[in-house]
């Protein structure tokens, strides 16, 4: 058996490969072809490098109740804007038939929603990294794409980094850098600010610059205002 399989393999003139090339999903929110033409054109012109020649799948999930659409016209609009229509997904049976007539195959790429299921609302829970053990000198903790919460002491010489906010409930004696990917809205919250350095989106204050700190009993926040790092009691 295995031998014959081997022979077959050698003779076969193709092989399947899975690839994860990006594919743009164009989700129709409402059916207005004139407006669609204008808006697609604007969007493509805004980022031509990204869009031109990009394969596009038309998602019909939100217009499934509107019946048969003019797929020929939609196809023209996409092609006119240098997009490559490759198929439709979502929608009902009649829409599928009309789409196939217009040269749109029906694909199941990505998570095409099962039409009978109630549409689940995706709950956006922002990521948070929680640290419960002391962060010692020389240790570095990075919360990628997330907030960082530390409920233990942060020693001098330790470094906290987060793409989001940083909350420290033990004494903060090391360095804390929030919004390291450039999020200027990120903040640092702590109970006792004895940090060596605090930074928001690359703007920083070293300990020597942290004069007139709020009294020890109050919570402190560090934020960015007009490209200046501010420290204030809460």
């Amino acid at each position: 058996m295995s031998d014959s399989n081997l022979v077959m393999d050698r003779r076969s003139c193709f092989r399947f490969k899975t690839s994860f090339s990006p594919c743009t999903i164009l989700q129709l929110a409402r059916y207005d072809l004139e407006e669609l033409s204008k808006q697609v054109s604007t969007a493509v012109n805004r980022a031509p490098n990204f869009f031109i020649g990009s394969p596009v799948i038309l998602d019909l999930e939100e217009v499934r109740t509107l019946g048969v659409l003019d797929f020929n016209r939609i196809k023209q609009i996409l092609i006119a804007n240098n997009l490559v229509p490759v198929g439709v997904r979502g929608g009902d049976v009649e829409q599928h038939a009309a789409a196939v007539d217009a040269g749109f195959p029906v694909v199941t790429i990505g998570k095409a929603k099962q039409s009978d299921e109630p549409i689940k609302k995706s709950v956006q829970v922002s990521q948070t990294k929680l640290v419960t053990t002391p962060i010692r000198s020389g240790m570095q903790v990075y919360a990628k794409d997330a907030d960082l919460i530390v409920i233990a002491p942060v020693s001098p010489g330790a470094e906290l980094l987060a793409d989001g906010n940083i909350h420290v409930y033990g004494p903060l004696r090391g360095r804390a850098l929030a919004g390291v990917q450039g999020n200027t809205q990120a903040r640092i919250f702590c109970r006792t600010l004895e940090a060596e350095l605090v930074a928001i989106a690359g703007y920083y204050l070293v300990k020597e610059d942290m004069q007139n700190l709020p009294s020890h009993d109050s919570m402190v926040q560090v934020y960015l205002e007009n490209e200046q790092v501010r420290i204030a009691a809460m």
Binding site: T133, R136, S137, G138, M139, G157, A158
Partner: peptide, 13 residues
């Protein structure tokens, strides 16, 4: 004290 703190970090990992 700082060096000991560093060692405690290594001890925990």
């Amino acid at each position: 004290v700082r060096d000991s703190d560093r060692m405690l970090g290594l001890l925990s990992s």
